[in-house]
Design a protein around this nucleic acid. Structure first.
Length: 262
DNA sequence: AGTACCACCTGACGGC
DNA sequence: TGCCGTCAGGTGGTAC
């Protein structure tokens, strides 16, 4: 799940649970989720501190430590956060655990271990070192259009390119293309001004709506593809069956009637 | 520059 | 029931 809307939901969750409490200790439970900081460095950087604020850029979550420095979390394909009290409620694939002085815990659960936990100087330093593009929700239309006008390949791979926009992954790219009615293999160069404006509106609408729905497919409007994207179900506009194709190395679900090839 | 493919991992699922 | 191939929403590297 963890694309921009999911990570935004994690950020709000962390903000409403884990701020301003003394951290008694932190435990790296599986070193495969470590980035450049060692287990020891992480544990020492957190012990005795508290989380002061949370920020998100694209799919990254940054947690500010009192006294400086940031914990950074990337959720890979299967990561999520859980705040709990009793250890019997610890999630099953806990890879990194923060223990608070008040007896509660925050777990970074990451079944497939494709996520990352690290320390950075600032969100800006990671954005720069990873060369992440801007967060799409922070853009107006001219800033959104600008990088796409220089792209030549499939629009879906441009949307998913984290150096173009940070935060859009396979699922939400499909949703945006469904809402804007573009076939996933449409070439960016084919899009005119109107098309780009349509894509811009769809991007904002999809991401904002998903956040309002807590990134939960069960809460999303009937007009959304996402809740039915796993099987060959009926198109939300009742225009036939959803099909899947390989595009840019990923599975794309789309409606061949709503999103004709061109 | 773009794309196709593999790797990293675990686990669920369908076919036999 | 068990084994096996395939697939999954993340990124990153390679070769063409």
């Amino acid at each position: 799940m963890p694309e921009l809307p999911d990570v935004e939901v994690f950020k709000r969750y962390l903000n409403s649970t884990a701020l301003h409490q003394e951290i008694s200790s932190a435990e790296v439970k599986n070193e495969k989720v470590l980035g450049s900081a060692s287990a020891r460095e992480l544990e020492r950087a957190l012990a005795g501190k508290s989380f002061e604020s949370a920020r998100r850029h694209g799919k990254y979550l940054f947690v500010g430590l009192d006294g400086g420095g940031w914990l950074v979390l990337h959720f890979g394909m299967t990561g999520y956060l859980k705040y709990f009290k009793e250890m019997e409620d610890e999630p099953p694939h806990d890879r990194f655990l923060v223990n608070f002085g008040n007896g509660f815990h925050l777990a970074f659960d990451c079944q497939r271990m494709l996520g990352k936990v690290d320390l950075v100087e600032s969100p800006e330093s990671l954005i720069e070192s990873e060369r992440l593009g801007p967060d799409p929700l922070a853009l107006d239309f001219p800033a959104f259009r600008e990088p796409l006008e220089r792209k030549k390949g499939a629009i879906k791979s441009a949307l998913m390119d984290q150096r173009v926009f940070a935060g859009i992954g396979n699922v939400y790219a499909d949703e945006i293309l469904f809402q804007a009615r573009f076939h996933p293999k449409t070439n960016s160069a084919q899009l005119d001004e109107n098309d780009l404006e349509n894509l811009f509106e769809a991007t904002h609408h999809v991401l904002q709506t998903a956040i309002e729905c807590s990134a939960d497919p069960n809460e999303m409007p009937d007009s959304f593809l996402l809740p039915r994207r796993s099987e060959e179900k009926e198109c939300p506009r009742n225009n036939g069956r959803i099909e899947k194709v390989k595009a840019s190395g990923r599975t794309a679900y789309y409606c061949p009637v709503c999103q004709p090839e061109r």
